[in-house]
Write a protein that binds this DNA or RNA. Structure first.
Length: 116
DNA sequence: TTAATGACCTATC
DNA sequence: CGATAGGCCATTA
């Protein structure tokens, strides 16, 4: 209800990511209206006030690479969680964004009140 | 208060 | 087409 507004928005979008899909920081920032908020999005997930509740493991970078240090329990934890969701990983250890890239259309309609 | 950092992205050469 | 540099927002020290 003040400065947490920005963070709350990030958590809202992250919680809105459907199972078996992933999105990028830039995509989330873009949904907020400021594509440059990509860094703040990562920071919001870094603080992650509700680990285990917020599916931050479904958020990856633009290259589809996972976070260097996952704060959920183990670095391999994120990859396992995504694999359990049915996400395919490449030999590079990156997520196939072309297969699970969530554009956040649902959130866009909810915020802008209309489709793209 | 100023300065520096960060789970990033976009634009330009 | 590929690589480099900069920028933007918020938070912390």
């Amino acid at each position: 209800m003040s400065k947490q507004n920005t963070f709350s928005t990030v958590y809202e979008i992250v919680c809105c990511i459907p199972k078996g899909y992933v999105t990028t920081y830039g995509q989330i920032a873009r949904l907020m209206g400021n594509p440059r908020l990509s860094r703040v999005v990562g920071y919001a997930l870094h603080v992650n006030p509700r680990p285990g509740i917020i599916p931050c493991h479904r958020v990856v970078n633009r290259f589809g690479a996972l976070s260097p240090a996952f704060a959920f329990g183990g670095v391999n934890r994120q990859r396992i969680l995504l694999e359990e969701e049915g996400i395919r990983f490449t030999s590079d250890g990156c997520v196939d964004l072309s297969r699970h890239m969530w554009n956040g259309e649902e959130y866009y309609i909810k915020t802008h009140g209309g489709p793209l």
